[in-house]
Design a protein around this nucleic acid. Structure first.
Length: 108
DNA sequence: CTCTTGACTGAGG
DNA sequence: GCCTCAGCCAAGA
């Protein structure tokens, strides 16, 4: 498969489709894009999307851990954004992940 | 072109 | 359930 420049657009689009008060994982987005093994690329795409309308704070790893919080401002900004949506976060980890988890392959 | 890095995930111990 | 190893793909030096 050739590299697909649309991968970024797709990643951004899916991230924007995440409902309020919900979160998803890089793997879920990657799988939806048809690149289940390219979860890292999604994270990389998020880095590129930083500064855009992409709610990257709703995207976490499969453990529900806010691995990307260091890329926002290096503090608790990401956690506060999630808590503002009703998502409980403790120690950079999302609580009740199963309840707030949103899978694009299932919901879409 | 080659090597390293990375916002990850799944499998094995 | 936690820790470690390997696979994965793309971009930057």
């Amino acid at each position: 498969m050739k590299p697909e420049p649309n991968f970024f657009e797709k990643s951004h689009e899916v991230a924007k489709l995440i409902p309020f008060g919900r979160v998803t994982s890089y793997g879920a987005i990657a799988k939806y894009l048809g690149a289940a093994r390219s979860a890292r690329m999604v994270g990389w795409a998020m880095n590129n999307s930083h500064g855009k309308d992409v709610p990257a704070h709703r995207v976490v790893n499969r453990k529900g851990l806010l691995t990307g919080k260091h890329h926002f401002d290096g503090t608790n900004l990401m956690q506060q954004l999630l808590e503002s949506e009703g998502i409980k976060v403790v120690e950079n980890q999302i609580q009740d992940l199963e309840k707030v988890f949103w899978d694009p392959t299932l919901e879409l």
